[in-house]
Design a protein around this nucleic acid. Structure first.
Length: 443
RNA sequence: GGCCCUAUCGUCUAACGGUUAGGACGCCGGCUUUUCAAGCCGUUAAUCCGGGUUCGAUUCCCGGUAGGGUCACCA
């Protein structure tokens, strides 16, 4: 029983997007599920377009997603081997040096072409079943620009064989490349790996995800404050499912349950909204300490931040959003708000003037009697009877005291409830803000 | 256009040839300690079309349609 070997073979000619990494995820999960090896091979045969920073970005993204390679190669390391096999093919007359008329800048006057035997080539795709291609219309395709510059189709076949790759798991956009690669394989007498062509990931306009059309680089999701386990979870579920109703699987569960026979044939659309909800799930699963460690928050008071984490978990879908909240709608927890008299009175019943002011004064007494450090529940317990009493007086009564209180504490039209606010702010700060509000109301 | 692939709610998807076609996300609605958020409850919503095969097709076969991929001296 031979061990499974899969590979992820990106070319460092740009920043890779989620669709690219989705193939890495499947190749990794399949290999690890089977106890096999996962290889990363940087396909840098296009010297002109390959850039070190792109290669660096690939390693960064893979490390962040925690898809560690068992072996890492760079295709350009295999030049000598490629050259030798190219020479062999030419000696065989399976390939030949062809004189060309350059059509585009950079074109050579001489390239190496493969002598196409014609006929049909079939292979059994692990996901799609038998696929047959008439290779006749491929013509004598180019396999190298020169002895030292093999083209993708040639290099990929040689490297996969040399590295012992058993399963070529890649995007469905490679289906039509497979036949010619098999032709090269046969000419070279190499073993034929199994092919698994994954359904493509489409953008909202139903086109293949592409940087050109605005797809984000994977590392942008990291920078937005998406958790790697969330992205992994989401990516794994694009074109695959475990066969039951679970939606949130950890990396360990994914490895354990991944089953390539459950991979979808049809393409899937990348939905950022769903990704956000998956991310929120994993953010909520974090402990307070882990949440803070991941968040990269800049706040004056970490102790207070600990109390705010539950609010952040409730509201934010990404850590970026959480950071924005701390300096935006939740900034009142760190800074003394400026109050507006009109807003303080916004919910005052027209037939009962002074309700806001009287209410705040009543609440003030209750709060003053509280210990400094109380839970939101405890605060609520003390305050609600007063709000309820107001409610009994007429319509909107509860809100008539609760709104001014909440506004006095937050200075915002939208904020967490007043009980939570008080529990985070502490009794003394709460009292000071309420007094200020009473003063504004003419106390 | 040639060749290839694909086809279940808006999206991701489930369903030994027999189900009221299920779940999730979103949307919409309701509830709550009447801001926002969250939570809870609920609603809406799909088997592309046409032929077969079969007692019975989402499921198997054929055809069409639609969508996508690919046709580089890029990978």
């Amino acid at each position: 029983m031979s061990t499974v070997v899969t590979r992820f073979a990106p070319s460092p000619t740009g920043l890779l997007h989620a669709g690219n990494y989705r193939t890495a995820v499947f190749a990794y999960l399949f290999a690890k599920h089977s106890g096999g090896k996962f290889i990363v091979r940087i396909e840098d045969t296009d010297v002109a377009r390959s850039k070190p920073e792109y290669e660096e970005n690939i390693h960064e993204a893979l490390a962040w997603l925690r898809l560690p390679a068992d072996e890492t190669y760079r295709q350009s390391e295999h030049r000598a081997r490629h050259r030798a096999l190219l020479e062999k093919l030419i000696a065989d007359d399976t390939a030949y040096v062809s004189k060309e008329t350059p059509q585009a800048p950079g074109d050579r006057e001489e390239v190496i072409r493969f002598r196409n035997p014609g006929g049909t080539v079939s292979f059994t795709d692990v996901i799609r079943g038998e696929i047959t291609t008439d290779v006749g219309d491929l013509g004598d395709f180019i396999i190298a620009r020169s002895l030292d510059e093999p083209v993708f189709h040639f290099a990929v076949v040689v490297d996969d064989a040399d590295e012992g790759v058993t399963h070529v798991i890649r995007g469905g956009d490679h289906i039509s490349n497979t036949a010619r690669q098999i032709l090269i394989q046969r000419a070279l007498g190499l073993a034929e790996p199994l092919y698994a062509h994954l359904p493509l990931i489409l953008d909202s306009s139903h086109k293949k995800l592409s940087k050109r059309a605005g797809a984000k680089a994977l590392t942008e999701y990291r920078d937005l404050g998406i958790l790697p386990e969330a992205l992994l979870n989401y990516l794994a579920f694009l074109g695959w499912n475990p066969g039951d109703d679970r939606e949130y699987l950890s990396r360990e569960e994914l490895v354990k349950d991944f089953d390539i026979s459950r991979v979808q044939k049809g393409s899937a659309i990348f939905d950022e909204v769903k990704l956000l909800s998956v991310n929120q799930h994993w953010m909520r699963a974090l402990s307070v300490e882990d949440f803070i460690a991941h968040g990269d928050f800049v706040v004056p008071d970490v102790e207070k931040l600990r109390k705010i984490v539950p609010l952040l978990k409730e509201r934010a879908h990404t850590f970026g959003e959480a950071r924005e909240m701390l300096s935006g709608e939740l900034s009142c927890l760190f800074e003394i708000p400026t109050l507006d008299r009109e807003k303080l009175l916004a919910k005052e019943p027209s037939d009962r003037p002074e309700t806001a002011k009287n209410g705040l004064e009543g609440l003030l007494k209750l709060i003053e009697a509280l210990p400094d450090n109380v839970s939101a529940e405890a605060v609520k317990e003390v305050i609600m009877p007063l709000a309820d009493a107001e409610e009994a007086k007429g319509k909107g009564g509860r809100g008539a005291v609760l709104w001014p209180l909440r506004y006095a504490l937050s200075g915002a039209e939208r904020s967490p409830d007043p009980f939570t606010l008080l529990s985070i702010l502490g009794r003394d700060e709460g009292i000071s803000r309420i007094r200020k509000a009473i003063a504004i109301l003419g106390g």
